[in-house]
Amino acid sequence: MNETNIDKPIIRLINLTRRYKVGPNVVEAVAGIDLEIAAGEFVALMGASGSGKSTLLNLLGGLDTPSSGEVWVGEVNLATAKRNILDQHRQHTVGFVFQSFNLLSTRTALENVEMPMLLVGERAAARRTRAHELLAQIGLAQRSDHLPNALSGGEQQRVAIARALANNPLILLADEPTGNLDSKNGAEVMRILRSLNQERGLTLIVVTHDPAVAAYADRVVRLLDGKIVEISMNAAPTIEAVPPITPVMSQLQEASV
């Protein structure tokens, strides 16, 4: 995961379209998008409500299937991939972070982080060790036995990030990860994501309404009615030197090798 070859696209969308039938009407949630995203890039998806940001993210994650067009992730076209390939895609290639955290409410923080490893058949001892490491690296070692409802929103979202990283994915897909957080916790989550991107070369795609969040990204893609209306490069993305996070993230990088 050390190669941060910005030039090599890890994601290629070709005339990607997703239509929904709602009664007699057809909604084009994603209406013919062409986009390339390089490995190690940090892209923010912005746009008004209903512009198709979540739909695009779900298509990238293999949770939704396009009506037409192609979704290339690495060597795989998700548009035509068989179910077992999509399963592998979700298990190993991408990690999800949701606005509402979506932690499994009956399981502790540690068990939540273990879950993706459990699903790919990792042994109990190995996944426990790695889950502890991941929680320690986001500063939640003391919270590992807490159930989600005993954690603050910021803590829950950090656990969700640790969980998304459990199987060491290439791409992290975050749908408004700061949407349910106050600005302080939101900033902390963004710092973590930014460091993961910088130090691990993790490809980041973050949906947001918040310009401050978009300011962390290398590139901002703006959608309207399912189409790209603007792509802008951030000449100077927000990179805050945050003492506790950065060293932790380099450890995380080692742990994942």
């Binding site: 949770l63 179910r83 399963d87 979700r90 999800f96 979506n102 499994l104 993706p116 699903l119």
Partner: peptide
Amino acid sequence: TREIGVLKALGATRRD
């Protein structure tokens, strides 16, 4: 249902 959705997003297969 929601838990099942989360598990699927995390990589659970139909067989799981």
